[in-house]
Simulated assay, not measured.
Amino acid sequence: MSDFDVPPRTRRERREARADAGAPVILTVCTGNICRSPQAEVLLRARLRDLDVRVHSAGTRALVEREMDRTAQELALQHGASPDDLAAHRARWLQEPLADDADLVLAMSREHRTAAVELSPRHLRHTFTVREFARLASSLSDEEIRRAADAAGSTPRERLAAAVAVVSGQRGLTAPAAPQDDDVVDPYRREREVYVESAEQLAPAVDATARVVRVALSGD
């Protein structure tokens, strides 16, 4: 039985447990959990492999226990994912304990962002589309992110939460994007060219996310 199957008895206990849990948690979300969100998951893991960070993915209408889509796997491998991570993936539903445990939720579209917030409303400021997070983070220097993390405390989850908060603070300060520019296109059952487009939208956003996490946790 996983940690997510036995949530703490109260939200206060859950928050206290999270503060002491050590490794920060990043959750990526799409619809079926076989294309975009597992791509984001395995690419983030690859970028952050030397750091103690837990990365999970889930789907709002997951094709439960399905493997990752083969074309999505191939493109993720080209972008640096681990073959072992690709082989291990099995789709699962987005559920409240999973969303509530995350320090950062990265949705593949605004629709998925809304679904995650509805499950865990207190994480509104910690939930973004992945391209939105990258866009907002681009207005912040490494020094600004590091300063926010240093002021927050010494635990990894405190430091990441502070970095995410400073990114969230850019909402309303930066020029809004066109709605489609904050979404990653859904390639499922479409032409290979759409899979390529989707991966090319996702990979730079993952890199931008990894920068924020790495600066917050390691100062590099």
Rank of each mutant, 00 (worst) to 15 (best):
G22W: 09
R54C: 10
G80M: 08
D20Y: 12
L202A: 01
D5H: 15
E67N: 15
D101W: 08
E16S: 12
F4L: 13
V6D: 15
D101A: 13
G80F: 04
R70E: 10
V185I: 12
D100C: 10
L94K: 01
R92G: 01
L77S: 06
E13W: 07
E132K: 07
E197T: 11
L173I: 09
T129C: 09
L48H: 01
V184Y: 00
A210C: 02
A203C: 06
A165R: 02
R15L: 15
H56E: 10
L140A: 05
V184P: 01
I34F: 05
V212Q: 02
V25F: 09
V212P: 00
R12K: 13
T129D: 03
R135G: 08
A62I: 08
A205P: 06
R90P: 04
V64M: 09
A199N: 04
H89S: 02
P204M: 05
T28P: 00
V130G: 02
V64E: 10
D101L: 05
P187Y: 00
L160Y: 01
D3W: 12
A203I: 11
R61N: 12
A21N: 06
E200W: 09
A216E: 04
R157V: 12
V194T: 09
R9L: 13
A177M: 14
P83F: 13
D186A: 07
E197M: 08
E144A: 15
A88P: 07
R9P: 14
Y188N: 01
R49D: 12
G32E: 12
L43T: 03
A148V: 08
V213A: 02
A134Y: 02
